[in-house]
Design a binder for these strands. Structure first.
Lengths: 221, 221
DNA sequence: CCACCGAGTTGTCACTGTCAACATCGAATC
DNA sequence: GATTCGATGTTGACAGTGACAACTCGGTGG
C-alpha cells in the first residue's frame, strides 16, 4: 500500500481507511472521525470510502471492531500473567485483574475505548432479530473473559451459586461506569494517583460481596 | 415570550434556546443539538444564539444543567417517599432507591441523562484550578444525595467506617455503568423485564458487600 | 478483443459551526 | 425630548461535513 499510489486503484483501501480511522480516534476520539478526512489522509478523493462502507456509521463500526480486539488482547496478556496454586485465590485475583485492565485500557486508550461502545447503536439496527443478542455479546471479548472468570469463581466456591446469575453484568457495569466517569464525567481531572485507590476500592467492594456468606445480611424487601 | 414575536428583540432568547435544546436532546440526543436548528425553532435567525453562548458547547452545557436538576428532583421525590423507623434499614433502602432512580432516569430520559455528562469536558477546561473539583461536584445533585445516604449508612453502623472513604465513587460508578450499558452498550436491546433483575442484582451486590463483616474475607495482596 | 463491473472521481446539495459586518431597539444621559 | 450607545438580532460569508448521482478508469471473464 504505497503512500502516494501510482495506479488508479488503491489496492486495499478499506484496510487503509480503517487504519487511518484508528489513528484519528486515538488522537481525537470517535466524534472527530470524518469520512472525508480519512479519504484525504489515505490520499484518495472524498466518496471513495463509500464503495467500502455504506455510511459513516459503518466505518466507525469497523474501527470499533479493531478497538475491541486490541482491548481483548491487552486484557488477555495481563490475565495470563496471573498464576496462583490455590484455585480460589487465583479466580479472585483474576477477577481483580480483568477489572483493573478494563479501566486501565480505558485510560490508556480513551478514544479506542469510547469508539468500542459508540458504535453499537448502528449495529443493532442492522442485525435484527430477538435472539441476536448472544451473537453480539460473543463479539465483546472482554465480556467473555469476565464470564469465564466468574465461572471459575463459582466453581471454586467463593462465589455462591445463587449469586452467579447476572454477576457478569454487575461486574461489567461497575468497571465500565468507573471508566466512563474517569473519561468524560466529573472525575476526568483526577490524576492517576487519585484514581488508583478508587479502582481498588471498587474491586474490593465486589470481592467482599462475593465472599460474604449470604445469610449474613437480611433481605431488604 | 410570544411564539411569533412582533418586536425586533425576542425578550428571553437565552431561556427559549435552552428550552428548545432540551426538547431536541430529549428526542434525538445531545449529538443532534444544532445551534442553527434551535434558532430556527425559536423563530430567530442563525447566529442570534451567539449573543448568549460563546459556542455550541456552552449551549450544550446549559441544557446539561437543566437535565441535571431535573434528574436530581426526580431522585429526591422517590427518596422522600422512603420511610422506615429503623435508621439502618432506612439507610439501606435509601441507598437502593437512589441507585434505582439513577438508572430509571437514564432509561426514562436517555437524551437528558447523556447530555448531563457529555457537557463536562468543556466546563473543565473553562474553570481552571486544582481544587475546583469540589465545586464542580457540588453541582452534581445526584452525587450529593448519594454522599449523604452513605453517611447515614455509616452512622447507622451498617457500613464499616473503614469502607466509607471512596464509597460514593464506587456506588456511582456501578449504577452509572449499568445505565450506560443499557443505553448505548450491547445491552441496549434489553426489555424492561430483562433489565430490572440486573439492576436489583447490582444493588444487592453492593448491599451485601457493605453488610459483610470486614474480617470475613482475607485480603488479596 | 471486448464488454462488463467493481473501484475511484467529480460535482452537487443540504447542513453544520463560527467569524465579521451591519441593523435595530431600549435605556441612560444631556 | 433628542442623542448616543451598547446589548441584541440579522445578513453574508467561509470552511467543513455526510450523502447522493453521474461519470470514468482499468482489470477480468467471456
Amino acid at each position: 500500500m504505497p503512500a502516494t499510489r501510482s495506479s488508479y486503484h488503491h489496492g486495499d483501501l478499506r484496510a487503509a481507511l480503517v487504519a487511518a480511522g484508528v489513528d484519528v480516534v486515538r488522537e481525537r476520539g470517535p466524534d472527530a472521525l470524518a469520512v472525508r478526512e480519512l479519504a484525504r489522509r489515505v490520499g484518495v478523493s472524498h466518496n471513495a470510502a463509500y464503495r467500502h462502507f455504506a455510511n459513516r456509521d459503518e466505518l466507525v463500526a469497523a474501527v470499533a471492531q479493531v478497538a475491541l480486539v486490541a482491548m481483548t488482547r491487552a486484557g488477555e496478556e495481563r490475565l495470563d500473567a496471573i498464576q496462583d496454586p490455590d484455585p480460589r485465590r487465583r479466580a479472585r485475583r483474576r477477577l481483580h485483574e480483568v477489572g483493573r485492565s478494563y479501566v486501565d485500557y480505558a485510560l490508556a486508550e480513551p478514544g479506542l475505548f469510547r469508539v468500542a461502545f459508540a458504535a453499537y447503536p448502528s449495529q443493532t439496527s442492522e442485525s435484527a432479530g430477538p435472539a441476536a443478542l448472544d451473537d453480539e455479546l460473543a463479539v465483546a471479548g472482554p465480556f467473555l473473559q469476565l464470564c469465564s472468570i466468574l465461572d471459575e469463581l463459582a466453581e471454586s466456591g467463593f462465589l455462591a451459586a445463587e449469586a452467579r446469575p447476572g454477576a457478569e453484568f454487575v461486574c461489567w457495569a461497575a468497571v465500565h461506569g468507573q471508566a466512563m466517569l474517569f473519561l468524560e464525567g466529573p472525575l476526568q481531572g483526577l490524576t492517576d494517583a487519585e484514581r488508583r485507590p478508587l479502582v481498588e476500592a471498587l474491586l474490593r467492594t465486589v470481592d467482599r460481596s462475593y465472599g460474604a456468606t449470604s445469610g449474613d445480611v437480611s433481605a431488604l424487601d
